[in-house]
Design a protein around this nucleic acid. Structure first.
Lengths: 200, 200
DNA sequence: GTCTATATACGGATAGAC
DNA sequence: GTCTATCCGTATATAGAC
């Protein structure tokens, strides 16, 4: 593994654990076992390191997040909740201190420059697209005209809001409640009389 | 207005606009027109100022947020969406740079001490309780046994996730989509299984 | 309770040898 | 491309006069 990759991986971990602003270059160097010259040779400024971290999340989302979550799960609706369950596992593994790395950065960086903001958007879009494809694959179960992208957006807000509350409460309960309620909506949609449902 | 109150108000504004970590004591002093001695006399450490800010949000939520949102709105379900619409107005007023002050702090502070975490929880709880009361007031419209607290939690995650996405996208669209989809769920619940709807 | 001056540490970033 | 030494600004917090 190259020094550059090691730096990006270490930075990603520290940004996720402690935040971008709260992570010092010195700590990244220490944890990566690298030295100042190497870091600033590869990344002229801290912001460039953040760009690399966000590109890594976007490019690795399939292999690192989605595929493991969907291994052995074939039903598209089950896949939606398998991905949400992956986040639940992150919460369990961290005793409810987990935060979505993208969501945390999206709220921490109050005035990101356009490159950073575009990468945050790209990450959200990959996630949403994947879920939208699941709903679309199960479109036969939903009333005609159902907006699957809208369902995917609500899935994302449910996850992000659920993780936020679970971490704050140091409890799985708000996450489980939000996801269970979202699931109730999906189930209700699937059983609703197609003629009675109005969709945008 | 006391110097202390002026400091808390200024700090609240700056923490919301730029984040807790990104706000320097010097900037608070400059914007509040106060001096170092006054600040550290009232608040021995920056954390104490944050405590005061979070207490102010919790204590002022009714007067500053809920009541203005509900002025002239009597139907309890309309009130749920009137509160969500208040956040939409914040997004409009700030050209989609608004962030929920509580949600932003909840994600920025990765290792808050217990006092801070409890205050974040308290703020979320006040918000959720208010919405739960709305749903409960309209309980006749919902199937028997509907979990109104769960609906309130989903309302909160919809708002927090919606604000996060709207700010990242610099567009109202994700917020509007999330809220409209949540509303579709509520409407679906109210019309679902008419035989089970509690009458009287 | 208000004010100025200062302590001390650490932030990101740079210079230049090798 | 790697490494050490260092610059300079700013951070929180403190000391002590008034």
């Amino acid at each position: 593994m190259s020094t550059r990759d090691k730096l990006v991986e270490t930075a990603a971990r520290l940004f996720a654990d402690n935040g971008f602003g709260a992570t010092g270059m010195s700590e990244i160097l220490r944890r990566a076992g690298a030295h100042r010259g190497s870091l600033y040779h590869a990344f002229p400024a801290k912001k460039d390191l953040l760009v690399a971290v966000l590109e890594r999340y976007r490019n690795g989302m399939d292999v690192r997040l989605i595929e493991p979550a969907w291994r052995g799960v074939v039903d598209p609706i089950d896949r939606v909740f398998a991905l949400l369950d992956r986040y639940r596992a992150f919460l369990v593994d961290t005793e409810c201190t987990f935060g979505c790395p993208i969501g945390s950065l999206a709220l921490e960086l109050h005035s990101p420059d356009e490159e950073i903001r575009a990468l945050l958007v790209a990450n959200f879009n990959v996630w949403t697209r994947k879920i939208e494809e699941c709903f679309n694959a199960a479109r036969g179960q939903f009333p005609a005209g159902t907006d699957f992208r809208a369902l995917a957006v609500l899935a994302l807000t449910t996850m992000e809001g659920g993780v936020m509350l679970a971490r704050t409460h140091r409890s799985l309960e708000p996450f489980d409640t939000a996801v269970a309620t979202f699931r109730d909506y999906i189930d209700l949609l699937r059983t609703a009389d197609p003629g009675a449902v109005k969709v945008g």
